[in-house]
């Protein structure tokens, strides 16, 4: 199973990026092979709909779970349609988050924010 974490830098010591859609990179960790792979996030620079595009990207890269501090409504809709499991990351480097996930210590992400563009409207 592949898990994905939005990261600020391409290292396991990187902090988890506060934004999912506009994270510069994603860390893809394969639990079977224990391999780490960092990919660029082209959605980071998009004018709008970054969460949608980033969600499509990680789904296309075979993600089955996402560890993130927060997630917008549109991204959540895409990820849920693909049955991606959502977990809330902890305030620790990406590598520590992988360890916490493997140990079953990360809670399921329940709070989905309305996105930053609509300011919670509707």
């Amino acid at each position: 199973m592949k898990i994905v974490i939005p990261v600020d830098e391409k290292t396991l010591d990187s902090g988890v990026c506060a934004s999912f859609g506009r994270a510069p990179y994603f860390l893809i960790y394969d639990m079977e092979t224990k391999e780490n792979n960092f990919i660029d996030n082209p959605a980071a620079k998009s004018t709008g709909g970054a969460g949608i595009k980033a969600a499509q990207l990680i789904i296309d890269n075979g993600a089955k779970a996402l560890l993130t501090p927060r997630l917008g409504q549109n991204a959540a809709e895409v990820l849920e349609a693909a049955e991606i499991k959502l977990y809330k990351s902890i305030d620790a480097p990406a590598g520590k988050n992988i360890e916490a996930f493997v140990a079953g210590e990360l809670p399921v992400l329940k709070e989905i924010h309305a996105g930053f563009h609509r300011h919670g409207g509707r």
Binding site: G48, G49, A50, I52, Q56, I59, N74, E77, V78, A81
Partner: peptide, 14 residues
């Protein structure tokens, strides 16, 4: 504007 996603053989329109 990334208003479209294609998931599980289905187009999602935002």
């Amino acid at each position: 504007f990334n208003a479209l996603a294609y998931i599980k053989d289905k187009l999602i329109v935002f």
